[in-house]
Write a protein that binds this DNA or RNA. Structure first.
Lengths: 326, 326
DNA sequence: CCAGGACCTGGCAACGTTGTCAGATCGTCG
DNA sequence: CGACGATCTGACAACGTTGCCAGGTCCTGG
């Protein structure tokens, strides 16, 4: 800027004004400055600008588990879109589900003075963020709740979705409904499982039959095996509810392989649903909306909204693509 | 830092040293500083640090077309992993295939003084980056070549892959091979098409038969329709080569629906290949390797490598999962 | 006993901007 | 005709940090 000023024969400050489109600069001078700037290949230093003005870095941080995972990629896409509307850049960091790493990354992002943070929590204690939040960095949690910190949160209605899914199976006449889930160590899975149990209990179905509720189903292969085992029992289930799409995939394969006419309902939609051997009913939700809502909430905070922390729920939807009755 | 210094009863400079783990600080003093820092909730300001030291912002920029697209999400994941190994944050920006937007984003990233740029080009002229490159911001292009700028580039062997794909079909006895592609406006598609034509010509197959080479196949629906049209012609093709996985998807559906025994070979692998109604032979490649290679090249540059710009080719691989002969 | 190095600490300027304030010129209005 | 506001410009300090240099103490070896 000093060089540009020298070349244009004006003061440093005038260059600053031109660069920032500030009012009260003579057209002629402004043109001279602009000319000098392009000749010298001047690029405003965003760091210095942010440092001095102290207002905004035009950057937000997004902390997710793994950017390569389509679910998080969708979230990133929606967040990027909202960020763009606010002329803001997006730093994306992956915690790989490690609380320790999550903590480091969040600290780093704060040190970079991002204007706000969008966080899919990995750990279950976020009280270490209290200082930063009080210091003025807005944080919005999404998909999972924060631990030990009052904060804005946007969640999917996992519980309600699972409830309505099981309800639909009951409605179709099923009484022996198997529930297949991954692990209760993840919040979303716990919620879905709880919702499913609620609906079973409400219907007086064999909710207490723990034979039919099977966890530890980590991948499609396990899912296929477990489905097989359940079907081979005496008095086998007439319907399966798989609590994520990895499980659904394996279940579809096994049911299809056996030519079984058991009903299958899956949590999570498939973008390649067309590839499945038959129309599958699922509990779907709008991942983009989840992220968009969170991002908009965040920018509201950044722009000065000081209301009490809010909790929003994104509804799920039962997409019926055919479901055999009992 | 001033406050921490005051509280610890040392000079500003000593605090700086402690914070940076610089040598030559008494244990006792260092502990006092650390204590004061935590009490005051001190966070080093990364902006000021980068500004003053002028060395590095520990940030790189990744410019892609659309982060929600699985291909780019995979690239982002691999780039993030390499960045992490270098204690560097990743700013991801999506150009949405708009050259104008690409230009703006790259300028912005440069203004933020990122240490380097990873770019999947949208436009075909990147000479505007010349100034920044000469000024010292390393840039590595990936998946598509840069225009009007000598620069490091990492590409997939699209041409070779397509060539070997067609060669395999010829080998299996096919003489009437239909080629389905999207649009020649994208570099990768042009290369694949060129490779396919080369192999057809080399085999003396009916490469000149433009009836069998069909462009404008933008989505699975169109692909299905075009496959149908081709099969309904007199003297229909005995094999299809689809140049991306959207096309393959539609082709699979149509062939399956008709119970056709025509051979199908697709460019791009499927992560859900298991869902396809039959084992599909594809030209696959390692997207992570593409991005990892580019990122490693970039960090090499950042760390001072000043060799002439390099061009690397990531090989493709024919994954044979069954392919009917003519 | 002194030179020279290792160890430790602090003062000051500087990185590239922008906010604040002061000053200059000009036109307008009471 | 003087006061005042609108318009325009520049000097200077400051944002929070680090590089450079100076200066101190202590120990070792000649």
């Amino acid at each position: 800027m000093v060089d540009v000023a020298a070349r244009a024969g004006v003061s440093l400050k005038t260059v600053s004004r031109v660069v920032n489109n500030a009012p009260y600069v003579q057209r002629e001078l402004a043109e001279r400055v602009l000319a000098a700037a392009t000749e010298l290949g001047f690029r405003r230093n965003h760091l210095a600008s942010s440092l001095r003005s102290g207002r905004t870095t035009a950057t937000i941080g997004l902390l997710i588990e793994d950017i390569a995972n389509p679910f998080y990629a969708t979230i990133a896409g929606a967040a990027a879109e909202v960020a763009r509307q606010h002329d803001t850049m997006l730093i994306i960091a992956s915690s790989e589900e490690e609380p320790e790493r999550e903590r480091e990354l969040l600290s780093d992002l704060c040190a970079r003075r991002v204007d706000g943070l969008l966080v899919v929590p990995a750990g279950d204690d976020h009280s270490f963020l209290r200082a930063e939040v009080e210091l003025g960095i807005p944080v919005v949690f999404l998909d999972r709740p924060a631990g030990g910190l009052p904060a804005d949160t946007v969640l999917l209605d996992n519980r309600g979705g699972a409830r309505s899914g099981v309800a639909r199976l009951i409605e179709a006449g099923h009484r022996r409904v198997a529930i297949l889930f991954d692990s209760t160590s993840v919040y979303t899975m716990r919620e879905r499982l709880a919702g499913a149990r609620e609906a079973l209990a409400a219907a007086g179905a064999t909710a207490d039959d723990d034979r039919l509720i099977r966890g530890g189903v980590r991948d499609p292969e396990t899912a296929a095996r477990v489905v097989g085992e359940l079907l081979d029992q005496p008095d086998p289930p007439t319907a399966f509810f798989s609590l994520n799409n990895r499980i659904t995939l394996g279940a579809v394969e096994e049911l299809h392989r056996r030519g079984s006419d058991a009903a299958l309902l899956g949590f999570d939609d498939f973008d390649v649903a067309r590839l499945l051997p038959y129309p599958l009913t699922v509990i779907a939700y709008d991942t983009r909306k989840l992220a968009r809502t969170a991002a908009e909430l965040l920018f509201g905070r950044i722009e000065g909204d000081r209301c009490a922390p809010r909790s929003l729920l994104i509804p799920t939807e039962l997409v019926a693509r055919g479901l055999p009755a009992s």
